[in-house]
């Protein structure tokens, strides 16, 4: 059981110190959120304005705005792009988690001859920077027709997340007391039930931690998405990149609004899993 230290016990000095450090870390995020509520004039003001009249115009323009020279506000497609980001990241993380959990349990409990070699080979797929493999992958996707499809990009992200997921989840399985599983066998459980009823419930914290890390990686991914998604499957980072520039230059207010919205899903997921996450990160550091 985690027991929180009594609030105020650290004293004013340390609390202030911690507050200042937190502010330094949080400041860029705060800046983006503030910018999202500024008018175009306010975003460019020097010195920067901390107090201003907030506006929601930027958030409206994320989804529909009047293009230069146009008359009517038109749909920017960002509704679809947000859906794409959520759908693609969510599905591929879920798939990586399911496959990764099964693989990790296998590697942990039923080691093959040369187990470590297999694990190393899996890890090597993450050693090359994405930019190195992007051309062959691009060509493969073109030839197989996977380019621009949900299936293609989900497949790629799942493969992209798997090595990390397998390694991380395996470490959680390795930490478990194996006698507990033997106890379940003695109590009459089949191997399948040992996995689902005994082993799996014990690593939920680890799964949550893995899911959050994988989700953030996938959510932010730009390079593969830029080259391998089409107009219908475009994700937010790519769409955001395309907003920069054009006839009116950089619209910081609009970008601020997109980023603010883009932060929300990751924030919600991380917040929802925070207790699990804390347990996941500190797992095995305390003797049971």
């Amino acid at each position: 059981m985690l027991r929180r230290r009594q609030i105020g016990k650290a004293g004013w000095g340390w609390s202030l110190f911690a507050g200042v450090i937190s502010l330094i870390y949080f400041f860029p995020v705060l800046w983006i959120i503030l910018t999202a509520f500024k008018t175009r004039a306010d975003t460019l003001a020097t010195p920067p304005k901390l107090f201003f009249t907030p506006t929601l115009d930027n958030f409206v323009s994320v989804f529909s705005r009047t293009m230069v020279g146009g008359q009517e506000a038109i749909d920017t497609g960002f509704g679809l792009f947000f859906f794409n980001s959520i759908f693609i990241a969510g599905t591929s993380v879920l798939l990586a988690l399911i496959i990764g959990t099964l693989a990790a349990y296998g590697f942990s409990r039923y080691p093959l001859r040369g187990n470590d070699t297999y694990l190393f080979i899996i890890l090597t797929t993450r050693m090359l920077p994405p930019i190195v493999v992007i051309i062959p992958i691009f060509l493969m996707f073109r030839i197989t027709g996977l380019s621009g499809t949900y299936f293609g990009i989900i497949l790629l992200y799942t493969a992209f997340n798997l090595p990390f997921s397998i390694w991380m989840i395996k470490s959680f399985f390795d930490e478990l007391n194996r006698e507990v599983e033997d106890a379940a066998r003695m109590d009459g459980s089949s191997e399948r039930r040992v996995f689902f009823r005994i082993s799996l419930p014990q690593v939920t914290a680890g799964l949550a931690a893995t899911a959050v890390f994988a989700l953030i990686l996938t959510w932010n991914e730009f390079l593969f998405a830029l080259l391998l998604t089409g107009t219908e499957t475009r994700t937010v980072p790519v769409a955001m990149g395309r907003t920069i520039g054009g006839e009116i230059g950089v619209d910081y207010g609009l970008l601020g609004a997109i980023v603010s919205l883009f932060l929300i899903p990751v924030f919600v997921v991380t917040f929802a899993l925070q207790n699990q996450l804390l347990r996941g990160v500190t797992f095995g550091t305390i003797r049971k």
Partner: peptide, 27 residues
């Protein structure tokens, strides 16, 4: 057969009741 382990090997995610009930539930 039944076995009592050195580490007790209780199911950490289950209550004491469910720990005791486990062998019966498997039956």
């Amino acid at each position: 057969f039944a076995m009592i382990f050195q580490t007790f090997a209780l199911y950490p995610h289950l209550t004491a009741f469910e720990n005791l009930a486990y062998p019966l539930r498997e039956e």
